[in-house]
Design a protein around this nucleic acid. Structure first.
Lengths: 210, 210
DNA sequence: TTTTTTCTGTTGCATAGGCAACTTTTTTCG
DNA sequence: CGAAAAAAGTTGCCTATGCAACAGAAAAAA
């Protein structure tokens, strides 16, 4: 996100001056926000990391999305169509900025610099979100666990400019992220190792094919 | 899309005046564009309907996305991470506007009204795309065919303000959209009918539960 | 209209992968 | 540090779902 440095510059000044915006801190495993009704809430993660988590009626957990520094999230991005619980949970200690989406369009009276900046860069910000989501869909539409894993590894290897990289998740969470059973995933990972597609030690994966 | 009427107003004037933009027509089943490399291409569907289709290495077809009037698509929204074919194919006769994303940011010299309008409304446009994609992810992360179908039906029923609605796809395409096997889907649909969850005649579905 | 193609609906079979139930290893925390 | 909790790793069983292969209905083309 090429906005990040600007955010860093403005965030402190703005949380002091801008009344449309709230900054809160959360400890590990605290619920940051729940997606329930249309509050038009928009959030920016300032520090830490968090997950958008859903539990379906069978108790299956899915990591719908994983957020890092300067990622944005909130109900505006969602049609709340199901009655599944959908909430954002702090993975580590977090700082989060909250504001209403409306206030983005109608800048606050003080003509807060941060708002202006955000407004200007907002397209870019969501554009990158679209890219990310498309990648996600690409992965999820793959039919087999093998294809999902290899697809994900390929993306990570591209992102890291190397065919060796660290998984940003625990394996347990990776399974939830790819929406597959953990033990089945482990099984398939073993197969991929045995068949020489990947090498794996701890959370480090090396792609061997291509 | 609340921009649509504006698009309608401006599109004709702009295709005549704006040199950064191209309008093309396509017949049914013609390839509109292929996602290969980073051309930063951005497209708007003016009329007709089209699909973003992927064939994976096993020959499985997936409808990654389905486009209708005034939907936007193009490579900017994609990280081309896989070597799978990814292209947009006309489902019916189509008219499409092509332009480079850069030209959105740096408006053309004539200060083309359409550009300006698009720039202003671009955030809204992508925002709705994010919402759509999140819905898609929500569906795809569901673990069973039953949950995917019921999830999708629920969304359609909300969208139509009625628990009776027409499927926007053929059943064949619906299966591709949900990334599941068609015959397995038919089987599950039969079960849902037999168990009294839905009623179905042709492409019309009625949700009976809740 | 007739022919051809596409879509729908159904079924038998095979298997990928979900589920449960463990043990072992690693991490967290008092 | 030691205890407790979480994550990694493994395996057997079983069913949901993919695949193939149809026939009939509907739509498109000729």
């Amino acid at each position: 996100m090429d906005l990040s440095f600007k955010i860093e510059d403005f965030v402190q000044a703005c949380t002091k001056n801008c009344n449309k915006m709230q900054k809160k801190s959360f400890k590990k495993d605290e619920i940051i926000t729940t997606y329930i009704e249309k509050r038009n809430q928009l959030c920016i993660l300032i520090s830490g990391s968090a997950d958008l988590v859903r539990y379906d009626s069978n108790g299956n957990k899915t990591i719908v999305e994983h957020f890092n520094k300067y990622d944005i999230f909130g109900e505006i991005f969602y049609i709340i169509a199901t009655n599944n619980e959908l909430f954002v949970k702090a993975r580590k200690e977090c700082e989060v900025l909250f504001f209403a989406y409306d206030s983005l369009k109608h800048r606050c009276k003080q003509n807060c610099k941060f708002h202006q900046m955000l407004n200007d860069g907002f397209s870019e910000l969501i554009l990158s979100k679209v890219t990310f989501l498309n990648t996600r869909v690409e992965l999820l539409t793959k039919r087999t666990i093998r294809d999902k894993l290899l697809g994900y590894f390929t993306i990570l290897s591209i992102r890291n400019f190397s065919n060796s990289f660290l998984l940003p998740f625990s394996l347990t969470d990776l399974a939830d992220y790819l929406s597959i059973d953990r033990s089945a995933m482990m099984r398939e990972m073993k197969n991929l190792k045995d068949e020489g597609f990947i090498r794996k030690s701890g959370n480090r994966i090396t792609l061997l094919y291509r």
